[in-house]
């Protein structure tokens, strides 16, 4: 499986620690999710809601018009939803600034390698799969134009 370097590094970090520490890692990532820039902070309706997540999560994807078509990701999720924020932060850390082609090449089941199924439950993890699917859809739409 070839993953963008930042995402590969995250997957390695998760794989190296035990299940309890994986939760701690997810919590730290959740704290690191950046605030929305002003152009989205006041315009939540321009973002796409990820309905598959158990808590409200909004997502915006920007693709640079030229060159490698670098992808930029923006997420909004409330502090009462740290798990969802953690998933979003994995996406943001792992994929932001990567070329569109590399984002599209991320395997849909990459999250299995994070080893979170036991600590978080497979059911909750499906929110992350949905997040990736929606990111890819938006990237495809943007690059097809």
């Amino acid at each position: 499986m070839t993953l963008p370097p930042q995402l590969a590094e995250l997957v390695d970090e998760f794989a190296e620690v035990g299940p309890r520490d994986r939760l701690q890692l997810l919590l730290e990532l959740s704290d690191e999710l950046p605030e929305l820039p002003p152009r989205y902070a006041d315009a939540a309706d321009t973002m796409e809601q990820v309905h598959e997540c158990q808590s409200p999560l909004f997502l915006a994807v920007e693709v640079e018009p030229d060159g490698d078509r670098l992808v930029h990701l923006f997420f909004s999720a409330p502090p009462e939803a740290p798990t969802t924020r953690g998933f979003a932060s994995i996406m943001r850390t792992g994929l932001d600034g990567e070329p569109a082609a590399d984002v599209l090449a991320v395997p849909d089941d990459f999250y299995v390698a994070l080893g979170l199924a036991q600590a978080v439950s497979p059911l909750r993890l499906r929110g992350m799969a949905a997040m990736l699917a929606r990111i890819k859809n938006q990237v495809r739409t943007a690059t097809a134009a």
């Binding site: 939760l23 959740s30 798990t83």
Partner: peptide, 9 residues
Amino acid sequence: DEDVLLYET
């Protein structure tokens, strides 16, 4: 909780 990490926050 529903959220598995909420307690930790």
